[in-house]
Design a protein around this nucleic acid. Structure first.
Length: 960
RNA sequence: GCAGGGGUAGCCAAGCUUGGCCAAAGGCGCAAGGCUUAGGACCUUGUCCCGAAGGGGUCCGUGCGUUCAAAUCGCACCCCCUGCACCA
């Protein structure tokens, strides 16, 4: 099936690109450089992604038309293991993956080629550019396309890191990060890009407490080091075999699974034997900090997979401990079986240590009683634990049993006690994941210590200060984010910037074993678009892209002649690139989704501030919200959303562009709704039809008042559009052009407007207004009007100030209100009208009204005041009480009005004349005879004396 | 938990910064009428409740409060979404 709209789209895209109107070169005009944060190429995109991209194209098209020299470059991000894992799945013919590829239109024969990650990246790069961006008619400068795994881009990234190091912004220190035991570092996050399961896991920090027991240390893991003062006994699982591990000359007893995990965090651990839990029961051990001997007791709830499988017991604040203790105390048979003396165990009492809001001294005892928990197997213990932990942490204070920490908030004591125990050698730190995490490869993910990790030091005080100052001066949308980014920049700390493992990306220039990670290599890149063009055109070679080269073109270091010799780059080309940078930079807007607010945008800003001179620091950020699926977020990795090329074919590109820009504020999530897109399609068709009607109107007709109304209206709308676009408010722009203007034109025709010359003038404006959002259909109409060149290159309309006649617009509003009033009367009374009489207010009423209005606008309106003014006017005074009463009524009415109403009411026109001229129209609308009188017309037909109720701007109405 | 963003008529969605024609734009849906051979096309009108005269009543998550006046400002509460760092 041939699709006409697809043909039209292809035709114009072909013409634009063949002439190169999308290509940008420096010249004497003011410039504007805008990008969207490039996407990661880890699969197909869906219709939701096009929202932000469309904003950039529409905004830059607008800015071109108002006379700016615009640069809109695009690229892609391929760093990471997304492409690798996709290639792996394709190689192994994973059915889900194959189905996903085919569903998105990947040719069957292509699949065999996609087993190689680099091929995957190339494949998707091609799709992004041709099937998404060109297909949507973007005027991006394709010559500058780049991708993070291209060798030239990598030269640039290496330069960036050299500069960060020069600036003292790279630091090295140990780090604990999730890693697959096989593949190396992985991201643990809800999207589970790297994972098979466990995306919701969090990294938890345990304190390992060491309990001296004979020649061993029993090592318990706890999340609550501050509770050491409440320790009463030690728990061991009698059914588990523990391992003895040599650690720095000590012998530690821990569970085997915990040893397997701990190996990745501590050096020199060796298993030297095993010991059964049962054997430990009944021994005594020395608790850290309090240095008391406590008994080792049996407990089935000690899970070898959690922590170390050994637990210190704090029955005052740990519901598990309390219930386990109580059950044991009541079970003599069991106690004797373990060789424990029942009276010793029964002697154990919880020790109160924390006072928290809403709880007595022993919260664990209290909550289990309240919830009726009496068995250690009760699943509600988990919830009880959470509640006590939460309340204790946030509202608790250590009590008098806690030595020097007495009185201290738990939040603070926790850290201090932990640090104290570490320094005294009684504790160490151990990280674990809160649930099981499995890598895509099927092996477990653990927390691994990386001893020599490199970080970018975003906590650097000067960098933070400069970035915050810059953010303050930037144009950041939405404005809430302009405020909030200050806090984000403060909160931004050191960030690991390199990693090892199976990973696409750039080699760290100071140590080859590292690869620069995915966020750090995508922060400064907009400036690289100014170089990539020359590399893509083969004017630069890889070996030219040295530190000296980048220092020169980006930082203006060195004399061109010297640099030319050192780098082998033609001196003219060097000068050219240098001046391009000087012209195009800084970046004016970086647009990206809301997920970027806490990571990418601050990193983007801080890298610019850290590496480049102040004049190149970015000027703006635009954050857009998502198009979401009916069942939550449309996910790139999970698929399920309509593929972009299919949607473009089905709905047409312009309807989709209009949908994105108009459906809602950019700062709100919107549910993808095909029916809505269909409606936008219908609207564009309606506009096309209206255009044809306007073109068919005869020329050389005399100008009527409705013509002036339309011209005024159009200019007012152009003015609104230009005003709102200062804030890149595409939604208001779309609303004015595709909704309000259409209804203006419809009203014009309904009112009998039909002047071909006026229509031509209006059309000329209207089409140009449409060019940024629906460029294909605008071009098509433009061509149909025999205009030269492209409407995309035309000037954006300017309002004709002299044509804006607000009093005419106001009069038309008045007419609409009169018709509304008549309709309401007809509806309520259910009269089938034979005749309608309208009575406009007489001069004396108007005079009072004008006086009142003037007083109100000067903020001096009062009832006594207006009465006085009225009575001091000899003409009005003759009206006596009527005038005074009317004056009071006017004043009461006006005092409720807003400033803008006052302005509107001040636009005066002759009501009687206007209604009289429009009576034929009203008659046609209502379907009966319409007579217009002035209230004081002695010959007026007024059988029910309605006329006297007239008020300025509110004629009296009589229906019969 | 911490931080940010939200809750508006049947649905979607403006309005909230700068309180006042706000019963609250616009779109969708629905209803009636028109136009049509027909239409899922288009045009008009209506779409919280009451009303035989353009009026009145109630309403913007819930509850208080400030004010002559609150969808808009303040406080408290309930519910939803996002981010929290090697996914960009």
């Amino acid at each position: 099936m041939t699709n006409r709209s697809a043909d039209v789209e292809a035709k114009w895209q072909e013409r634009w690109y063949s002439v190169g109107i999308n290509e940008s070169e420096a010249d004497s005009r003011p410039k504007f450089m805008m990008i969207f944060a490039y996407p990661g190429v880890t699969g197909y995109l869906h219709v939701g992604h096009m929202r932000g991209y469309t904003y950039v194209d529409a905004i830059t098209r607008y800015l071109r038309m108002i006379g700016l020299n615009v640069l809109f470059p695009v690229g892609t991000h391929a760093t990471g293991n997304g492409a690798i894992s996709l290639a792996n799945r394709i190689r192994s013919r994973d059915p889900g993956t194959i189905e996903y590829l085919l569903a998105n239109g990947c040719p069957e024969e292509e699949i065999a080629n996609l087993g190689d990650p680099v091929k995957v990246v190339d494949f998707f790069n091609e799709i992004y550019v041709t099937q998404y961006w060109k297909r949507f008619g973007f005027l991006a400068d394709w010559r500058r396309f780049t991708c993070t795994i291209y060798p030239d881009y990598q030269k640039f990234i290496q330069w960036q890191f050299r500069k960060l190091k020069d600036g003292g912004l790279l630091v090295q220190k140990p780090y604990f990060a999730p890693a697959c035991v096989e593949c190396g570092p992985v991201a643990v996050d809800a999207s589970e890009t790297d994972l098979q399961k466990g995306g919701r896991a969090e990294t938890v920090e345990y304190s390992l407490l060491k309990f001296k027991c004979e020649d061993m240390f029993l090592v318990a893991a706890t999340l609550r080091p501050e509770t050491v003062y409440g320790q009463t006994n030690f728990w061991v699982n009698p059914d588990v075999e523990y391992v003895k591990v040599a650690k720095d000359g000590e012998t530690w007893v821990i569970s085997r699974p915990s040893y397997e995990k701990m190996r990745y965090q501590m050096d020199g651990l060796t298993v030297i034997g095993t010991i059964h839990g049962k054997k430990l029961v009944g021994k005594k051990c020395t608790a850290p900090v309090i240095h008391r001997e406590i008994p080792v007791l049996p407990a089935s709830f000690c899970n070898p997979d959690v922590g170390t499988g050994l637990v210190t017991s704090v029955p005052s604040d740990a519901p598990d401990d309390w219930i386990a203790l109580r059950m044991l105390q009541e079970n003599d048979v069991l106690l004797i079986e373990y060789g424990l003396r029942p009276e010793d165990v029964r002697e154990i009492r919880p020790i109160p240590i924390i006072d928290s809001k809403g709880w007595g001294p022993l919260p664990a005892v209290e909550i289990t009683k309240r919830m009726g928990i009496s068995d250690i197997a009760d699943s509600r213990l988990e919830e009880a634990k959470k509640i006590i932990y939460r309340d204790g942490f946030h509202t608790g204070r250590m009590n008098e049993n806690c030595g020097e920490y007495a009185g201290m908030p738990v939040e603070k004591a926790k850290e201090m006690i932990r640090d104290f125990m570490i320094s005294s050698g009684e504790a160490e730190i151990f990280y674990d994941l809160s649930e099981e995490v499995i890598c895509r490869c099927g092996r477990p993910v653990v927390i691994r210590r990386v001893p020599d990790q490199w970080f970018i030091d975003y906590s650097n005080a000067e960098l933070t200060k400069n970035s915050k100052d810059q953010a303050e001066s930037m144009h950041i949308l939405p404005s809430e984010y302009h405020t909030n980014i200050q806090g984000v920049l403060d909160w931004f700390r050191e960030r690991a910037c390199v990693r090892q493992g199976n990973w696409l990306g750039t080699r760290f220039p100071f140590d080859d074993k590292w690869i620069i990670e995915a966020i750090s290599d995508s922060t400064l890149y907009p400036i690289y678009y100014l170089v990539s063009k020359y590399f893509n055109e083969d004017k630069l070679k890889l070996e030219n892209l040295t530190e000296v080269f980048f220092d020169h073109v980006f930082l203006d270091i060195g004399d061109p002649a010297d640099v030319s010799i050192t780098t082998g780059v033609e001196i003219e080309l060097l000068k050219r690139i240098r001046s391009d940078v000087e012209y195009w930079y800084p970046l004016d807007i970086n647009l990206g989704g809301k997920e970027h607010m806490t990571v990418h945008f601050p990193a983007f800003l801080m890298n610019h501030v850290g590496v480049l001179p102040q004049k190149y620091w970015p000027k703006g950020i635009f954050v857009n919200w998502y198009i979401i699926g009916k069942l939550g977020k449309i996910s790139k990795s999970k698929g399920g959303a309509e593929p972009i090329p299919g949607a473009a074919e089905h709905f047409g590109v312009d309807p989709m562009r209009l949908y994105y820009t108009h459906i809602a504020s950019p700062f709100a999530d919107v549910e993808w709704d095909e029916e809505a897109v269909e409606n936008y399609k219908g609207r564009i068709e309606r506009i096309s039809k209206t255009v044809e009607e306007l073109k068919a109107l005869p020329e050389g007709v005399e100008i009527a008042s409705i013509d002036n109304w339309l011209l005024s209206r159009i200019s007012s709308r152009v003015k609104t559009v230009r005003e709102c676009m200062k804030e890149f408010d595409l939604r208001t722009m779309a609303n004015e052009i595709y909704f309000e203007m259409l209804s203006d034109i419809k009203w014009y025709m309904r009112r009998g407007g039909g002047n071909g010359n006026v229509a031509g003038e209006v059309l000329d404006v209207w089409i140009r207004l449409m060019a940024p959002i629906t460029p294909h259909c605008a071009e098509e109409i433009w061509e149909g009007m025999n205009r030269d060149r492209f409407v995309s290159l035309a000037d954006f309309p300017t309002p004709v100030e002299s044509g804006i006649r607000l009093e005419i617009e106001e009069a038309e509003e008045y007419l609409k209100n009169v018709i509304t009033d008549i309709n309401e009367i007809l509806r309520v009374t259910e009269i089938s009208p034979k005749r309608i009489c309208l009575y406009t207010s007489p001069n004396w009423k108007q005079r009072i009204f004008e006086n009142g209005l003037q007083m109100a606008r000067e903020n001096r309106l009062s009832i006594p005041g207006i009465t006085k003014t009225t009575m001091s006017d000899p003409i009005l005074k003759k009206r006596g009480k009527d005038a005074a009463d009317f004056a009071r009524k006017v004043a009461e009415g006006l005092m409720k009005r807003s400033r803008s109403d006052m302005d509107r009411l001040a636009r005066s026109f002759d009501e009687f004349r206007y209604l009289a001229e429009s009576s034929a129209f009203i008659a046609k609308e209502i379907g009966c005879e319409v007579k217009v009188y002035s209230e004081d017309d002695p010959d007026a037909y007024d059988p029910q004396s309605k006329a006297k109720t007239s008020v300025p701007r509110r004629p009296a109405i009589f229906v019969e």
